[in-house]
């Protein structure tokens, strides 16, 4: 039985000082606190990979808005992840120019190589595969984005190469890539 319903976490105990500083900056440039909601979600996501329920509650409390309201925002935007994702999130463009230039083959190759479909994460938690609308690289289609990096002129082979490189890199040195 849950008699004490919510043990409220204080945002200042949950968020790191860096996160708080970044969120405070966003708040400072907006007219209302809630207006910083999307940016705050992005800040926390940048540090933690995704937005857990707990993160959502804490951010909402910090912005003095309801969790329901913030959840409505979080679920509207596709670049906010409300589920855990792998270290590298692959956003493969599936819009028209990439369609015309064969993104489907690239997709098949990635799916086969990683053994996951859209929306899934590899068992080693390294990769999550998502589709993305036009990435603005139509003249260099097909394209994908991993983390902050755009990869262009893809072929099935090239896509697998890129992913393999990341896999190796991760195995050998465990370097932090800019995500």
């Amino acid at each position: 039985m849950e008699i004490i319903k919510t043990i409220t976490v204080h945002p200042k105990d949950y968020l790191t000082s860096q996160e708080l500083a970044e969120i405070d900056h966003e708040i400072s440039i907006m007219e209302t606190r809630e207006a910083a909601g999307i940016e705050a979600l992005k800040v926390v996501q940048a540090h933690r990979g995704w937005i857990s329920d707990e993160s959502l509650h804490v951010i909402a409390t910090y912005l003095r808005m309801s969790s329901a309201e913030l959840e409505g925002v979080a679920t509207f935007y596709n670049l906010i992840y409300r589920q855990p994702v792998g270290k590298y999130v692959i956003h493969l463009c599936d819009s028209v120019s990439c369609h015309l230039t064969g993104y489907q083959q690239v997709l098949n190759a990635i799916v086969q190589h990683l053994n996951i479909g859209y929306g899934q994460t590899t068992e080693d938690n390294l990769f999550t595969l998502l589709s993305n609308v036009c990435l603005g690289g139509c003249d260099k289609a097909p394209v994908m984005m991993i983390g902050k990096q755009h990869y262009e002129h893809l072929t099935p082979e090239k896509a697998v190469e890129i992913i393999t490189a990341l896999q190796n890199q991760n195995q050998n040195e465990n370097v932090e890539v800019e995500l």
Binding site: A36, G37, L41, G72, V73
Partner: peptide, 21 residues
């Protein structure tokens, strides 16, 4: 922004900028 094509529509964009849907 955090995605969504509709944000390009100017009034949707304003809502997005206000931190709304």
């Amino acid at each position: 922004s955090a995605g969504r094509y509709i944000c390009g529509e100017e009034t949707a964009l304003i809502n997005a900028l206000e931190g709304k849907r």
